[in-house]
Structure formats: structure tokens, C-alpha cells
Nucleic acid binder design. Structure first.
Length: 221
DNA sequence: CTGTGGATTTGCT
DNA sequence: GCAAATCCACAGG
């Protein structure tokens, strides 16, 4: 029996993540991030906002990416095979989660910036220190909020294969249609601030940051 | 609504 | 030594 049973939809194949992050990112919108915690709680959210971070093989390279200066112990997952979770700690108290893409040996990853909660909402509220029934956007709108809601940590989740049926952390496709994606510049960085590498589901209430998005629409996925 | 500052650790230079 | 892909509380308009 799979570690995650009764999870909705189908597991995404590794080939899904073999492309460059700027191309895979919009495809990831609408997919489900599913986590099973140690107590057996199933926690799931729909991916509604992501950002692409490019590997150093790109010309020009992406100075905002953790891989900009080459492999280090921290970022080795991003240089490994596609479809693996890169979870890192930031500002001493938070975590952010990415998924590696590009073929093994090339770097590239996608930062998950916001989810729309789908399953395990009470548990998410508890993990976030919020009362049951809190607004959805308070649970998982923001890269560190979503990690806190799903209980994702570097020690517990960095390096996990999100395409394995044995993994406690998966990305699944339940057929939810996302007609198009909105693309804007990335948020919260100080370098390469003009690259249009943030992708979001237009109009979704759980998208983080300014409610008014100023990007251009990309063609239907 | 906007802006500001503090918390607090890690990882690299 | 210090910057960091954040969040939250609080002040002011």
C-alpha cells in the first residue's frame, strides 16, 4: 500500500519536471501538493503561485537563484534529479519549498509561493497557530506559510522525491483546469528583480503579495 | 491601505 | 561578518 493512499488524482511523472523552470512553472499551477505527516494526517493544497529560479548554465545566469555560485552542500538537491523537494531555512525561523527541475546535472527549481487549502484544513490551522476556520489565505498564502501549514521542514523533507508513490510528499494532478496563468516579476528578492518569472492563477484569493497583479497573460496551458 | 522594524538561524565569503 | 526567495505586529493616513 502506498504511503499516501486515498490521495486525490494521479502522481505526476518525473518527466513532468525535466524541463527548464520557466517552462514547467506555469504547468504546475492547479496541481496538488500532498503531504502526509507522522500522525497520518493528509494535508493537501492546490498550487496557485510559483516562481522559477534558473540554474547557472543559463545565459545570462540568474543572480537571485541559490545555485548562482555553483553547487554547495545546501543547494545540492537542485543539481540532482528532477522532481525532488529542495527545502531550506530562511530568516532563522521559516522554511521555503522548491521542486527541482531540469535533467540531472543541470540546476533549476520552482519555488512554491502559495496554495489553496484542499484537505486537512484543521490541521493546517493548528500548525499555523491559528483558530479553526481561519481564512484560507492565512493558512497557505506565502512560501513559508505553506511550509508551516503542511509541516514541511529541511530535516524532514529536503531531498524527498515528489514523484514517488512511496513518498510522504507528492505532487498530484486531479484534472483541475487552469485556463491561463498570470506572469509577473518575482517577489521578495533584491537581484534580477525585472525577470518575469512569477506565475499565478488569475483571481485566486490565496495568491500572496499585492492583490493587483501587473503581468501579462501567457497562453493557455 | 501603506510603511517600518524586529525576531532569529543558517550558510557562504 | 552579514545578507537572506519571510512573517507579524504595530503605527499612521
Amino acid at each position: 500500500m502506498a504511503i499516501i493512499s486515498r490521495a486525490p488524482g494521479r502522481l505526476l511523472p518525473r518527466t513532468f519536471f525535466e524541463g527548464p523552470p520557466e517552462r514547467v512553472s506555469p504547468l504546475l499551477l492547479g496541481k496538488l501538493l500532498v503531504a502526509k505527516d507522522r500522525r497520518g494526517n493528509l494535508l493537501a493544497g492546490r498550487i496557485v503561485e510559483v516562481e522559477a529560479y534558473l540554474g547557472p548554465h543559463n545565459l545570462p545566469p540568474d543572480p537571485a537563484a541559490h545555485t548562482y555560485r555553483g553547487p554547495t552542500p545546501r543547494n545540492q538537491v537542485i543539481f540532482g534529479p528532477p522532481g525532488h523537494a529542495y527545502v531550506y531555512s530562511i530568516y532563522g525561523r521559516y522554511f521555503c519549498m522548491n521542486i527541482s527541475c531540469e535533467p540531472e546535472g543541470l540546476a533549476g527549481c520552482i519555488l512554491l509561493r502559495a496554495l489553496e487549502p484542499v484537505a486537512g484544513l484543521d490541521r493546517m490551522a493548528k500548525n499555523r497557530g491559528l483558530p479553526s476556520g481561519s481564512a484560507l489565505r492565512l493558512l497557505t498564502s506565502g512560501p513559508s506559510r505553506l511550509c508551516q501549514a503542511l509541516g514541511l521542514t529541511r530535516l524532514g523533507h529536503n531531498g524527498l522525491d515528489v514523484t514517488s508513490n512511496k513518498s510522504p510528499l507528492q505532487v498530484r494532478d486531479d484534472g483541475y483546469p487552469v485556463p491561463d496563468a498570470l506572469v509577473t516579476v518575482r517577489i521578495g528578492i533584491k537581484r534580477a528583480v525585472d525577470l518575469p518569472l512569477r506565475f499565478a492563477v488569475p483571481g485566486n484569493k490565496c495568491v500572496s503579495g499585492p492583490t493587483k497583479l501587473t503581468g501579462v497573460r501567457v497562453p493557455p496551458i
